[in-house]
């Protein structure tokens, strides 16, 4: 199965480096009991949205978590992941700085059970001295980016638990934006939300794209088709096909991809 991917990837792997935010070369991931990613080679273009799709257990989350070292202590990751000229999979890398630059959003909204203010201030206060006025200025900016500022009528002291699920997820998005990341990793960020809340998150992501590279895992194929520029299809730990979203959805090259898109297997 390892052989089939090369044909479809060749063109993209030759993308010039200045257009690439992250480049994975021969990435393998091993959990204690099994290998979850096999020889993954792929690129994530700058200021684009790349969707990772594939059936449950195909290794999407596993690969995503490699990209900001969230697999540390969970799985053994080998291979190189190029980020701005360095291999972020190198053990010497400062993971705390790295995770500020490469933020992550999870499936379940996970705000801290405190005020909106605490949620937004927490990360940034750990990393830099910032004046109160500058801090609040930035809070306002990120809350406006995720369209939450008006919904909470500017009340930063409101308790995060008092927000709806969709609002909580957007607060979590704002929380990572406080750190002004280059790259955002999202693991099924809308799968716990209703269609309206989902649409809001999608609109936010499309707007953020001009500054940030976005990589999103999703089970929702329409969502992938709606918002992503590139799509990677995973199956049983292998990257089976990678292409522009349009091409991959309209004219998949692999039979596996076609079957998956047609809903022929779960």
């Amino acid at each position: 199965m390892a052989a089939m991917k090369q044909a479809d990837l060749a063109g993209y792997l030759n993308f010039p480096n200045q257009d690439i935010a992250l480049r994975c070369t021969d990435v393998n991931v091993d959990y204690a009991t099994e290998r979850a990613i096999f020889d993954c080679n792929c690129v994530f273009p700058k200021n684009k949205i790349t969707a990772l799709i594939g059936p449950s257990g195909s290794g999407k989350s596993t690969l995503l978590r490699c990209l900001n070292r969230m697999n540390d202590g969970r799985a053994q990751v080998s291979g190189t992941i190029d980020y701005e000229g360095t291999n972020l999979n190198d053990q010497q890398i400062n993971v705390y700085q790295l995770r500020q630059k490469i933020g992550m959003l999870f499936q379940q909204p996970n705000p801290f059970a405190r005020s909106i203010y605490f949620n937004l201030a927490f990360g940034i206060r750990e990393h830099q001295a910032i004046s109160k006025s500058e801090l609040e200025q930035r809070m306002r900016e990120v809350l406006e980016m995720v369209d939450l500022w008006s919904e909470i009528s500017g009340d930063l002291q409101r308790h995060a638990n008092h927000l709806s699920g969709g609002q909580q997820q957007r607060l979590c998005l704002a929380r990572t934006l406080m750190l002004q990341p280059d790259i955002l990793l999202l693991d099924e960020p809308a799968s716990a939300l209703d269609p309206i809340a989902t649409a809001k998150i999608e609109a936010n992501l499309l707007a953020l794209k001009k500054d940030i590279t976005i990589i999103i895992v999703t089970h929702n194929l329409e969502q992938a088709a709606r918002i992503s520029d590139y799509t990677a299809f995973f199956y049983q730990g292998y990257l089976v096909e990678y292409d522009r979203t349009k091409h991959l959805f309209l004219k998949p090259h692999q039979k596996l991809t076609a079957d998956y898109l047609a809903g022929n297997f779960g």
Binding site: Y96, Q100, Q108, F112, E126
Partner: peptide, 17 residues
């Protein structure tokens, strides 16, 4: 919930903090 720990770590904060 353990998701709090993950959220904090993903913000580049050490587990201890």
């Amino acid at each position: 919930p353990t998701s709090r720990l993950e959220a904090g770590i993903s913000l580049g904060v050490s587990q201890w903090h």
